[in-house]
């Protein structure tokens, strides 16, 4: 856990989102917010990641794939659900293609609400999570 707190690497997983949460995640990397300053890095493979950022409503087709990605990650790891969609399916509640919410497929540790959450909110969320883990270690 301790290693996880220094410079968490994140992998981003979209499970049927509208793309906006995903763009806001990428936005965190770009010059205005630039989370790389804090050692956070968006990586290309789940195997390298400490944090899994999940967006979207978990559509039927992506649920098995999402599970696979989670299983590939080195443990311990942290799962963060981003956006109303992944919190409670948001406006898509009742869709025939979204049988199960994200947090019943993956063990979610932190929820960041908003549609989409502002990059500031995402950074605040991750910071809170890190603080909590520091308290727990």
């Amino acid at each position: 856990m301790k290693a996880l707190l220094k410079s968490p690497w994140v992998f981003h997983l979209s499970t049927g989102s509208c793309n906006n949460c995903d763009i806001e995640i990428l936005d965190c990397l770009t010059p205005r917010f630039d989370i790389e300053r804090f050692g956070m890095l968006l990586v290309g493979s789940a195997r390298h990641a400490d944090v899994l950022l999940v967006t979207g409503i978990m559509t039927r087709q992506s649920a098995p794939a999402a599970k696979r990605v989670y299983e590939q990650m080195a443990k311990p790891c942290v799962v963060v659900a981003i956006g109303s969609c992944s919190l409670g399916q948001g406006i898509f509640k009742g869709s025939y293609n979204a049988p199960i919410p994200v947090d019943e497929v993956l063990p979610v540790d932190a929820y960041i609400p908003g549609c989409p959450p502002k990059p500031e909110a995402m950074i605040a969320g991750v910071v809170k999570l890190i603080q909590k883990l520091q308290g727990a270690k």
């Binding site: 979209s14 087709q61 794939a65 898509f92 869709s95 979204a98």
Partner: peptide
Amino acid sequence: IGYNHRGIEKL
């Protein structure tokens, strides 16, 4: 494709 299908027209 189809990973992102959310059934919006029906909704």
